[in-house]
Amino acid sequence: MKLLSRIEEVLLLAIWRLQDEAYGVPIREEVIRATGQHWHLGAIYGPLGRLYKNGYVFTVDGEPTPERGGRSKVFYRLTAKGREALRDLYRVNQELWTGISVVELEEEP
């Protein structure tokens, strides 16, 4: 099992959550919404490209539309490997958080 970086995890989750609507613009919006911080261009498309290269996601071209200057939307979908990676991450996260109380974390030492 190979652990993904945090942003890769966030991206995979965003793609999974958006399902059929997962193309660049909403993905970025989703990432920004979930994390509450600004992600610049390179920070999104860099890891996305890496995910693509390593086979976690694949792309499906949509119809070209005029508002995109004649370019098609490129939708991202998880591959089997991508879904497996998410499952692994879920397990690891659960493992890591087991027995940890958020209430205690909020108390001043």
């Binding site: 498309y45 693509y52 490129v74």
Partner: peptide, 24 residues
């Protein structure tokens, strides 16, 4: 310039995304 920054496999899609947001 943007094109230089993004992996060629996903470049076209990313440029499309940007243009869509730009137009919007």
């Amino acid at each position: 310039l943007v094109g230089r920054l993004i992996r060629p496999e996903i470049r076209a899609g990313a440029l499309g995304d940007l243009e869509e947001q730009f137009r919007d």
